[in-house]
């Protein structure tokens, strides 16, 4: 190996070591533990499928998985419906690059602040005596405050959409900003309607951004438990929350088995998305 090559490998070594030590090895450790025996109190090394069988045969677990998918799907769809027009506005309707940067930064800043705090900030709006209930009662639409706003599926979805939609806006914006304006102008000159331009030009060219955003939003929702815990008041569960609870009660092999299934499901979804769209050009 030449001197030049050696220095290249030295340069990537620190970062790669971090991922081998703290990503690859830990996942292998989880996989190993997921086959260990668990007697209700402690775990012993071994090779059993009972942790997995326990998951596949339990109605509670299966419905928790379905619930996780439900939330991931709903949050993903809402994020997409919000992010596409937002990104389009920034990329095509805001003409000056300076204002594009400023507006994009304004969208980004909240995402650099604490997620937990941003969840807490919903309490004055969604609570029993929150602004939403007060407004609805003031309008005479409801007589008694609706309890369900805070600590409900609605609150979980609302908070997740607010927490994660930038992960959709940014990649779509990034794809759209690269679209050659001449294409759009040409289509217009040839008499295309606005809808046709969206369908034939912008949507296909923004697809890689949508794919990247979708991967982010779906894996973020699948891998977390804080929003689920805080905004549902512990009423709804997700696999992340389930894993967290199992660890709190020291059921490590069960938690590990759930984690491995969650990882495989996430990888399956990511590979399905990557099959439909080629994202390599975006990087």
């Amino acid at each position: 190996m030449s001197n030049k090559n050696l220095s290249t490998y030295l340069l990537v070594t620190p970062q790669t070591l971090i991922f081998i030590l703290f990503l690859v090895i830990p996942i292998i450790a989880i996989a190993v533990i997921s086959f260990w025996n668990f007697n209700g109190f402690s775990m012993t090394p071994g090779f059993t499928f009972s942790n997995y069988l326990g998951i596949f045969t339990s109605q509670v677990y299966l419905s928790t998985y379905l619930n996780t998918f439900k939330f991931a799907g709903i949050v993903w769809l809402i994020c997409l419906l919000i992010s596409y027009p937002v990104a389009y506005f920034l990329a095509f309707e805001v003409k000056s690059p300076q204002w594009q940067t400023i507006w994009f930064l304004i969208c980004t800043v909240p995402f650099l602040t604490s997620n937990i705090i941003r969840m807490i900030a919903w309490i004055p709006f969604l609570g029993r005596e929150g602004l939403l209930n007060q407004a609805l009662m003031g309008l005479g639409l409801i007589e008694r405050p609706i309890e369900m706003f805070l600590f409900s599926d609605f609150a979980v979805i609302l908070a997740m959409v607010q927490l994660y939609c930038l992960f959709m806006v940014a990649p779509i914006f990034n794809s759209m900003i690269r679209i050659d304006r001449a294409l759009v102008a040409a289509a217009k000159d040839l008499g295309s309607s606005g809808f046709q331009i969206q369908k034939e030009i912008i949507l296909p060219l923004a697809a890689p951004g949508i794919a990247i955003g979708s991967i982010f939003v779906i894996t973020l929702v699948m891998g977390e438990f804080a929003t689920m815990r805080l905004m549902s008041g512990g009423k709804t569960s997700s696999v992340g929350y389930l894993i967290k609870n199992q660890i709190d009660s020291l059921q490590y092999p069960m938690a590990a088995a759930n984690a491995i299934i969650l990882l495989l499901l996430a990888l399956l979804i990511v590979s399905l998305i990557l099959r439909t769209v080629d994202i390599r050009k975006q990087l």
Binding site: I27, A29, T219, A255, A256, V270
Partner: peptide, 16 residues
Amino acid sequence: SLIVPSILVSLGIGIL
């Protein structure tokens, strides 16, 4: 590392 659900990273490092 971005795609792996976050809870796995936490759990894995804890186990390690």
